[in-house]
Amino acid sequence: MTYKLILNGKTLKGETTTEAVDAATAEKVFKQYANDNGVDGEWTYDDATKTFTVTE
């Protein structure tokens, strides 16, 4: 399945996607991606759209 991440960081905004077997796996990938890019904030997940959002 394809999962999407929306980044609403103070210095980085954008979107990315990943292929993962489940939401938990996608979340690990996205949290590492956000961490690597210096984005740390509040996370939400919408199962209907398979979209994670992180907002600083």
Rank of each mutant, 00 (worst) to 15 (best):
A24M: 13
K50V: 03
M1D: 14
T49C: 05
G41I: 01
A48K: 12
Y3T: 00
N35K: 15
A24W: 11
D22W: 03
V39Q: 04
V21C: 10
F30H: 01
T25G: 08
A48W: 07
L7T: 05
F52D: 00
A23N: 06
D47W: 09
F30D: 00
A20V: 05
K50P: 00
A23I: 10
V39A: 04
A48P: 07
Y33H: 05
T55S: 08
T53Y: 11
T25R: 06
A26M: 01
T44W: 08
D47P: 14
V54L: 09
T44Q: 10
E19N: 11
V54N: 02
Y33E: 02
E27Y: 15
A24H: 10
E19S: 12
D36K: 08
A26T: 01
W43P: 01
T51L: 05
V29E: 07
D22K: 03
N37T: 07
E42H: 13
L12P: 03
T25P: 02
T44N: 10
G41A: 02
K50D: 02
G38I: 04
V21I: 14
Y3C: 01
V29T: 10
E15A: 09
N8R: 12
F52Y: 06
K31W: 08
V21L: 13
K50W: 06
G38A: 07
K28W: 11
A26I: 02
L5D: 00
V54E: 01
F30I: 01
Q32E: 09
D46Y: 04
K10R: 11
A34M: 06
K28P: 03
T2H: 08
E19K: 13
L7F: 11
T11H: 15
L12G: 08
A34P: 00
E27N: 05
V39P: 02
F30V: 02
Y33S: 02
K4M: 08
A48G: 09
E42W: 13
A20F: 04
T55D: 07
L7W: 11
V29M: 09
D36H: 09
A24C: 10
Y45Q: 01
N37R: 15
T2K: 11
K31T: 05
V21W: 13
V39R: 02
G14D: 09
T53L: 06
T18N: 03
M1P: 07
T18H: 06
T18P: 01
G41K: 01
I6S: 04
G14K: 13
T25A: 14
T16Q: 11
K4P: 01
N37C: 11
E27S: 07
A24S: 11
Y33Q: 03
T2C: 12
Y33T: 03
A20H: 03
A34F: 03
K28E: 11
A24G: 09
Y3K: 00
A34L: 08
Y45A: 01
W43G: 00
E27W: 15
T16V: 15
K4Q: 05
D46C: 08
L12A: 08
T25D: 09
T53R: 07
A23S: 12
F30S: 00
T16E: 06
A20I: 02
N37E: 08
M1G: 11
V29N: 06
L5G: 01
T11D: 12
V54K: 01
A23M: 13
D40E: 13
T51G: 02
Y45M: 02
A20C: 06
T44S: 13
F52W: 07
A24F: 12
E27Q: 11
Q32I: 09
L5V: 04
A20L: 03
T17Y: 14
T17C: 08
V54T: 03
W43I: 03
N8M: 11
G41T: 02
E42I: 14
K28N: 07
G38P: 02
K28T: 10
M1W: 14
N8V: 12
T44M: 10
E15V: 15
T25L: 07
T25M: 15
K13F: 10
A24E: 12
A34G: 03
Q32G: 06
E56M: 07
T44H: 13
E27D: 04
L12F: 15
K10C: 12
K50Y: 11
G38N: 10
E15P: 04
D22N: 09
E56D: 08
Y33V: 05
E42Q: 12
Q32D: 06
G14S: 12
T49L: 07
F52C: 01
L7K: 01
A48D: 12
T55R: 07
K13H: 11
M1H: 15
E15D: 06
T25V: 08
G14F: 12
T11Y: 13
K10M: 12
K10H: 11
T55N: 09
T18I: 15
T51D: 01
Y33R: 03
D40L: 13
F52G: 00
M1F: 14
T55G: 05
G14V: 15
A23H: 11
T18V: 14
I6G: 02
T51M: 04
E42C: 10
Q32M: 09
N37S: 09
L5I: 04
Q32C: 06
T55E: 06
T53E: 05
I6A: 04
F30R: 00
D40P: 04
E42F: 12
E15I: 13
K31F: 06
Y45C: 01
F52S: 00
T2M: 13
A23F: 13
D22Y: 04
N37H: 15
I6N: 04
K31I: 07
D22V: 03
K28D: 06
T44C: 08
L12W: 14
E56H: 06
L12T: 09
T51I: 06
F52Q: 00
L5K: 00
V54Y: 03
T18L: 12
N8W: 12
K4D: 02
T2N: 07
I6D: 02
T18K: 04
N8D: 10
A26K: 00
T25F: 08
V54I: 10
T18C: 13
G9I: 08
D47T: 09
K28Y: 11
I6T: 04
F52A: 00
K13W: 12
L5H: 00
E27R: 09
E42S: 10
T49E: 06
K13I: 09
T25K: 07
Y45S: 01
Y33A: 03
V21H: 13
W43F: 04
Y33L: 05
D46R: 03
A24N: 08
K31M: 07
T25N: 08
N35F: 15
D22F: 04
V21N: 12
T51K: 03
T25S: 14
E42V: 15
A48S: 12
D46G: 02
A48Y: 11
N35S: 15
T11P: 04
F52T: 00
Y33F: 11
D36E: 13
D40K: 14
N35W: 14
K13M: 09
A48T: 14
E15W: 15
E19W: 15
T16S: 08
D40R: 13
T11S: 13
T11K: 13
E27P: 00
Y3D: 00
K10S: 11
L7D: 01
T49N: 07
K13Q: 11
T16N: 06
E42N: 11
Y33K: 03
N8F: 12
K28M: 11
E56R: 04
A23T: 07
L7A: 04
D36T: 08
E56C: 05
K13Y: 10
G14I: 15
F30Q: 00
Y3W: 07
G9N: 04
V39K: 02
F30L: 05
A26S: 02
T11G: 10
V39T: 04
D36P: 01
N37P: 01
N8T: 08
T49I: 07
G38F: 07
Y3M: 02
I6M: 06
T16A: 12
G38Y: 06
D22E: 04
A23E: 07
K31G: 03
A48E: 14
V39C: 05
T17M: 10
A20T: 05
T55L: 06
E15Y: 14
T16C: 11
E42P: 05
A23R: 12
Q32R: 12
K10Q: 11
Y33C: 04
K4N: 06
